[in-house]
Nucleic acid binder design. Structure first.
Lengths: 189, 189
DNA sequence: AGGCTTACCTAGAGGTCCTAGGCAAATTAT
DNA sequence: ATAATTTGCCTAGGACCTCTAGGTAAGCCT
């Protein structure tokens, strides 16, 4: 009986593709086993349980997104960097909805600390070097930017903006204009 | 054999409490049936299926949140209204995490149209009457505000801000200052 | 070739979702 | 007050998912 050659990595990769096809919440051990033509029980040599599989997918997706953002940021600064970051972020969410959903999973503190979540914060902070912001305003601004990007993308995906004819793309561009101007004139306390 | 007196409404109410206790994703038909001391199958006379139950919970939570926000907004305008809206919104998410998660469910267009989602947009728009914003900037600003509120609250709940010592409360207050100043000086195209 | 590790298997328990069909309690009609 | 109707909750059972225990065989190493 030939072996399928499973590893935790190949499972996570397949789970990522599956998530984009059927949605993150439908990534099950059974579906993954079917994909490889093996029995459910066989996967438990490689992953601890279903939650472990989803955590691996989340960690992998965070790293993948961080790579794409890093690439988009390379050689840019100021508004140029802000827009590049935002587009890379939103594009990932659109092209890989299942993986993006995975990045929103609540990770336990240890896992989060060793994940690429820190790189995301670091890159957001790098953008702010093009603006005149210092602690603690810098941290506040990082949180605001992250919130806005994530909020916009997830509301957009949830269909919250469909009720109005104004183009979602146009609002996004204007939101970036607004954030840029906000960062340039960050209000003093 | 005495009846439990189930109705779709009582089920939804219990589901809301259950959601806040065990998390939205753990609101199951079985758990709800256990809560009422009846068999799973009995619930299907009142709800169509598990998805239907979650949709009812989402619609109910949206309405509940809209009521709280409306109350907070009453008699306020300008930054005062902005801050009141934001605090009511964030407070609901903190006090009722399961219900708040429910409000983020993707609803089909018909359900969304008849839900309180429209009231949320309308109230956000009302805030902007205190600023000098007109279409299409108004819609862009509504989307930006909504995104930021939702993004901040959901990242906060996911633990994304725990890695830094800066207080989450302080950043939130500053974010509102920033949004206020942004709305007062909304950049022209 | 023999031995070791491990990839994958079968079997099965327990949980959730949901349907079909039945009885009995509550409600309405007579 | 009794009969007819509606409906709330039941049992039974199928389909799918999660996960454990224990076994067989494939592939690597000497």
């Amino acid at each position: 009986m030939a072996r399928a050659g499973l590893t935790a990595d190949r499972l996570t990769q397949a789970a990522a593709e599956l998530a984009d096809e059927v949605g993150f919440e439908n990534v099950t051990v059974s579906a993954l086993a079917r994909h490889f033509g093996v029995k459910d029980a066989s996967l438990y040599s490689h992953i601890r349980n279903a939650h472990d599989l989803r955590v691996r997918l989340a960690v992998r997706s965070l790293a993948e997104l961080a790579d794409l953002v890093a690439e988009a940021l390379a050689g840019r600064s100021g508004k140029d960097a802000l827009v590049a970051f935002a587009h890379a972020y939103r594009r990932y969410a659109h092209e890989h909805p299942g993986r993006y959903a995975a990045t929103q999973m609540a990770l336990d503190p240890d896992t989060a600390a060793t994940s690429a979540a820190g790189r995301h914060a670091e890159m957001t902070r790098a953008i702010l070097r093009g603006y005149d912001l210092w602690e603690p305003d810098q941290t506040d601004a990082v949180r605001l930017l992250h919130s806005t990007f994530h909020g916009y993308v997830s509301l957009e995906r949830a269909g919250a903006f469909h009720s109005h004819p104004r183009g979602v793309e146009a609002s996004w561009t204007r939101a970036l204009d607004a954030l840029d101007s906000l960062l340039r004139a960050w209000p003093a306390v």
